[in-house]
Nucleic acid binder design. Sequence first.
RNA 1: GCGAUAGUAGCUCAAUCGGCAGAGCGCCGCACUGUGGAUGCGGUGGUUGAGGGUUCAAGUCCCUUCUAUCGCCCCA
Length: 427
Amino acid sequence: MAKDIIRAVKGTVDFYPEEMALRVWLYETIRRTSESFGYQEYEGPLLETLELYAAKSGEELVKKQSFVFEDRGGTMVALRPELTPTLARMVAQKQGGLNFPLRWWSYGPFWRYERPQRGRTREFFQWNIDLIGADSPEADAELAAIAARFFQAAGLQPSEIVLFINSRSLMDRELGKIDVPPEIRPEVFNLIDRRDKMKAEAWAANAFELGLSGMQFETLCSLLEDGNLWQTSEELSRFFEAAEALGVAEYMEFAPYIIRGLAYYTGTVMEARDKDQEFRAVLGGGRYDNLVGDVGGDPIPAVGFAMGDKVIELVLQKYGKLPTADALLRPPILVTVFNEETILDSMRLAAQLRQEGLPVATYPEPERLGKQFRYADRLGARAALVLGPEEIQFGKVSVKDLGTGDQVTVDQAQMAAKVREILGLES
RNA sequence: GCGAUAGUAGCUCAAUCGGCAGAGCGCCGCACUGUGGAUGCGGUGGUUGAGGGUUCAAGUCCCUUCUAUCGCCCCA
């Protein structure tokens, strides 16, 4: 590797054309899914004041995992580590002038100052989608259905990805029933969330340190194994009925041990994982009814989720659902340049084809035709045109189908139709 | 922020105990100066991530550092 190339910033990502094609594909799939449910695209600033995040984001996120700096005017700003506080701010700012319920989605870059690992970089893209101003279980189910329909649109089957569903209010009630004091419930939630990551003994020891009795602990364990617990909850019963009606219930599974780390979730929580849980969560979200109030607006119920670009790509790759760059790139057709005398003729011909709506590149200088054809081939071009002295003399042009190798010489008036035929387009 | 493993040509990798840095693919050229892919032949390929140390001798051993990967932490 060349030694004198200045390195990219750690954890950032280069999008070469192949990767960019994939990013655009992901964006398009997200956009189509979001719009099919009637959601509108929006975007916030990439920089926010640190104060905004101090309002509600986790301590760890703001203090340790954000790119923070002082601007020239002395304001502490952060490269946004998440979008939800921005969304809450935007809603609070225009609260009186918005048409609730809002259905908004966004896809853009975020930054977290973390240790890069598989499925995690410091700069990444994230899909955020939220329904603001409704607090029904049916609204929650709509968000879950959007996630499921996205998986479907990306080609993932229910046998390959699962959307786990739980309710913090249900779990809160259950903890109340066994007299777990409200003060320690956030810590118990945190413990539940970490169950899969810890050894059983260590997990139990942790539970007793929090002050759970032996009986409370046992009840908690059986709760977490109870796949039918949702039936005792009216909201979750309605949620799953709605999911059924939305036609995507097969992607969902009740999971009492899913809590999500984020402190601001208040009701339903959801988390998608690949079926054998090889990777970290693909997406996470839930109901957060206090957030807009926390940034100074009137309290308003909301539900939403966020999905990063890295883990979904790993999952799609694992199941062979990631489109290849070949399938996504849209190469131009190539007009070759025969020699110095004819280069302007080639450029005029290319201009004419562009007027016809075709994507066209000319070779930028005279060069052996073999080299120009090889270039076209490597571009993935489907057709190449040759305009040599013989063609020019008779007002013709040679059109070669690079897939079949067939070449015909036609009047220039017919060339666009011929190219369309090769590309398989309607004339 | 903590612990561990790795880094050799554009890519994938090899190099015995510390003893001449190699192969395949790719790339370039020629066969084939009005035509890509296939084939054959020839060629280009490196400060062994970087810096320092030990040694007659370092890709190999030691230290530092960077990057990637795995785990911890965290996951909005």
